[in-house]
Nucleic acid binder design. Structure first.
Lengths: 250, 250
DNA sequence: GCACTCGTGCTTGTGTACAATGCGGCCTGT
DNA sequence: ACAGGCCGCATTGTACACAAGCACGAGTGC
């Protein structure tokens, strides 16, 4: 069991629930980051006690964080058997992508109508960060930041339920990308993000949606979901056997 | 404060997470049911200790249940100030309905392609139950069952992320209906549900989607979201003042 | 008479101890 | 030697006790 947890680096920016720093959120954000940046491999056991020691908090806090992560689908909670990093099957990946396509379309249309100048400025800044990460060679941060771009876009759309759903979809997508990405191409090209912002700023709904749909095409064309990527990752291959327990996910 | 909690009637069917009966799920399902059937009014405080005594479990269990309910949006968790039954504002209601329209459309299309004979049979049975509830005059159960119909439809669509999102949307919709419904008309007419099943069984996607869209129209035409329903419900009127604290919403 | 402040009580937040459950190794019998 | 069952260990599930924070009310000064 290769626990490659690292001993509590700085809180970074805490990505998502970045507001106020209740212990709870800090732990959540750290584990979340670690998973998305692939410092924690799919299938890795997440022991409550071990995590508690690492973060210097009791199991109570860890448990809440894991619960949240499970809700978003990046962690699998197996009754009486602990939590593991989720390893989405190909079928699950397809379902996530289908849902994302639908949501991104709606979000794009809403963003065209509702995004403010501030929203757009922030979005541009995020694309900058993303580009920086890639040029720095930090693939993990790149994956995470490109996800956060899509999340920020959802916020610009000003629809609370969609934001929260998007949060979950983006998390899972990042996990899928980390697991299935073929080659080392930039997976979520910032150029496309930039063009998208331009189209939204121009309030050109048709163009924006079009760009977004192509963007989605590009993302999943870069994954090899068609053949189960062979013996590359034994865990992923048998994950559906190992972890299909009693979750709500069919 | 009028705690109209009633002392632990039978588990009923536990509606949603009906599988296995861990204490956790039981408590969750009971509170969920009580809220959707309007035995718990929006704004009602949900004290952990009180609930614990009622259900005969410790606060730990209650807390998890409340956390799940908060995730679905039917309960509002205010840090250090306890949980209350959510009372969605008109704006929140609009956002939920927008999202639902989008999701129901996708679900309908998927269900046309993926629903099995078993799915359809179960759906028909649920519509029966729904009709029975209304003829019995049990409005609360009717609201809940019509919601469960839409949830079952999502399951027939065979897309896990959509199912879980739909669960949250249906819950919130039920709450909104309970809060804003004008008059006493049957709000989610079973006739429309039946026609929808027929169209799906006939694999007529265009018709099915059409019916679903009209169904959505009917639902929100029955609500008076346009004027804040006057002094009818003092709680609802001032809820945005009382509860807008630090939630992730917008 | 009004407003501000301080004290008190209740509710929630967190840590920890104990119980229950599943897992793996060991032993025994065939 | 291998299969099956038994027992001990580790990890999670639950409850409880203590700490902290907020709300309400009484009292006092202006």
């Amino acid at each position: 069991m290769n626990e490659q947890l690292q001993p509590l680096k700085k809180p970074s920016r805490a990505g998502k629930a970045g507001r106020s720093g209740t212990q709870d959120d800090i732990v959540y954000a750290h584990i979340f980051e670690a998973i998305l940046e692939q410092r924690l491999a799919p299938g890795t056991k997440l022991s409550e006690e071990a995590l508690g020691e690492i973060f210097g908090v009791s199991r109570t806090i860890i448990r809440r964080a894991l619960s949240r992560l499970a809700h978003e689908g990046v962690v699998l909670l197996r009754p009486n058997r602990g939590a593991v990093v989720a390893s989405p099957s190909v079928e699950e990946a397809r379902q996530v992508f289908f849902a994302r396509r639908m949501v991104e379309k709606a979000i794009t249309e809403l963003a065209v109508n509702h995004s403010t100048a501030d929203d757009l400025a922030e979005l541009r800044k995020m694309v900058q960060d993303e580009r920086d990460s890639f040029s720095r060679g930090d693939r993990g941060a790149g994956i995470r930041l490109s996800g956060e771009f899509h999340l920020k876009l959802a916020e610009a759309a000003k629809n609370a339920p969609l934001i929260s759903f998007q949060r979950s979809l983006v998390s899972q997508t990042s996990l899928i990308i980390a697991q299935y990405e073929s080659g080392n191409r930039s997976h979520c090209s910032y150029d496309e993000h930039m063009q998208l912002i331009d189209a939204i700023e121009a309030r050109d709904a048709a163009l924006a949606v079009n760009l977004m749909m192509h963007h989605m095409d590009h993302i999943d064309s870069k994954l090899n979901l068609d053949e189960e990527s062979a013996s590359d990752d034994l865990h992923a291959v048998f994950s559906h056997l190992l972890q299909t327990k009693g979750k709500n996910q069919r």
